[in-house]
Computed example of a mutant assay.
Amino acid sequence: MTLGRVLRNGTLTVLAVLWLVPTWLLVVNALVPAGSYSGSPHWLPRDFGLFDNMSQAWDRARLGPAFGNSLLYAVVSALAAVAVATLAAFATIVMPVKRQVLWFWVIYSGTLLPLQVFIRPLFLSYAETSLYDTQIGLVLIYTAIAVPFAFFVMRNYALTLPREVVEAARMDGASWWRVFWNIHVPLSRSAMIAVFVFQFVAVWNDLMFGITLTTSRNIRPVMAALADLQGNYSNVGPPIVLAGALLVSLPTLVLFFSAQRFFISSLKMHH
């Protein structure tokens, strides 16, 4: 085994351990029955109280409506971002549009500033336009922040698609819309699914906009509800909070592993 391979495997092992340690602590301490938690973290599993902890987290934080809200925000925003990004990638790469590089930077520039910069102007504008504390308001902002990265991925994937197919279809008289729907979309399906997974996870895990642009329990996403569990109930111990964190993470884990083959294939160059 070469030195380079040893260094690579060693680095990957260290990174895996660094990622697994906090995950292990989260799982082990979520297993501890809330009534027997001593206040210090457990490193090895002892008793099993996970389901009871999850049940208490679900009831006390009222996670049911929050789950529905986050599912709505994540699905609608991710789908809208994928649709917009796929159309934009088609327009800037496949269609004969002038200043393609300029359009790329105009759209992608949305990722260059930290999201915290937008909090104050968003709060003020939402309050003035009655979008504050509404589901449509969160859908709009989640879609807007998801488009730039989605466009970046879809544009790069579009660069690998065969141009000969498009040229042949145009010579046969196909309209741009037909080329997009019948050729570009089927060829880009794996990348579209991968982008959907990315954006679904990003929206599902958002806390900042959820606590800034909403106040009502029937509007707040699941991460904001989970934050309320720790902030508003001083008698709730860490095992219940950690069990709640595991519970709200399940949809993203299921989605990622169910779409794993599309995610992997989208990372490969199209030949």
Results as ranks from 00 to 15, higher is better:
R8P: 13
A89N: 01
N69H: 10
S130P: 02
T143I: 04
P41S: 02
Q56D: 10
Q56A: 09
L112Q: 02
L50W: 00
F90G: 05
R60V: 10
R62V: 15
M95V: 10
R99L: 08
A34P: 01
S77R: 11
L12P: 04
A85M: 06
S77K: 07
P45I: 11
T92W: 03
N9F: 08
D47F: 11
F67P: 05
R46E: 15
L25Y: 06
L31V: 01
L44T: 07
A81H: 00
Y126V: 04
L31T: 01
P22V: 03
L87Q: 05
N29V: 02
S55F: 10
V27Q: 05
V147T: 08
I136N: 14
A66H: 04
H42T: 06
R120I: 04
F90D: 06
T143G: 01
S55L: 13
S40Y: 13
V75Q: 11
D59S: 09
V94G: 01
V17W: 12
A30N: 05
A85R: 07
T111L: 14
A83I: 07
V17S: 06
A57H: 03
E128P: 05
I145K: 13
Q100D: 12
L18I: 14
Q100M: 11
L31N: 00
V106P: 15
I145D: 00
G137E: 00
P114Q: 08
F67V: 10
N69G: 01
A66L: 02
I141Q: 00
L115C: 06
L26T: 14
I136H: 08
N53D: 05
I136P: 05
R60T: 14
S38I: 07
A34D: 07
V147C: 15
G110Q: 04
L71I: 15
R5A: 08
N53G: 02
A57Q: 01
A74W: 04
R5P: 15
L15V: 12
M54R: 04
V82W: 03
V76R: 00
T13S: 15
L3N: 13
A91R: 15
L7F: 13
P45T: 07
T23Q: 06
L124G: 08
L71R: 09
A74P: 13
L31K: 00
Y108S: 07
S125I: 12
G4C: 15
A91Q: 15
P41Q: 06
A16T: 11
Q100S: 08
R5Y: 02
